[in-house]
């Protein structure tokens, strides 16, 4: 695969490590009363769609950026690539 890095342009996916579901950006509040439930859900349950999937990739053999890819799991087509820090900072955590 080729990932269109938002800063560096097209890079071979071999340079990256995939972590998985971008919902991991939405870490719950550890002090909330339902933290046991929200952390279980956060850590263990996945939507796992056959279709558009938002997921985290790390440019480990490159600039060490964490990226959020929007990718179709049926075709591997990549629809969007964003810097994870931009996604979080702009509030659109997922």
């Amino acid at each position: 695969m080729i990932i269109e890095h938002p800063l560096l342009g097209p890079r071979d996916s071999q340079e990256f490590t995939c972590l998985g579901d971008a919902s991991l950006l939405q870490r719950p509040d550890a002090f909330a009363g339902d933290a046991a439930d929200t952390f279980f859900d956060y850590q263990y349950l996945r939507d796992n769609p056959a279709g558009t999937h938002r997921e985290l990739w790390y440019h480990e053999m490159g600039d060490r950026s964490w990226l959020v890819l929007t990718r179709d799991t049926r075709t591997h087509e990549i629809l969007a690539v964003e810097l994870a820090s931009d996604v979080v900072t702009s509030g659109g955590r997922s």
Partner: peptide
């Protein structure tokens, strides 16, 4: 190993 990314392809 697996390919490391979610896929139904």
């Amino acid at each position: 190993d697996i390919d490391m990314y979610n896929s139904y392809a």
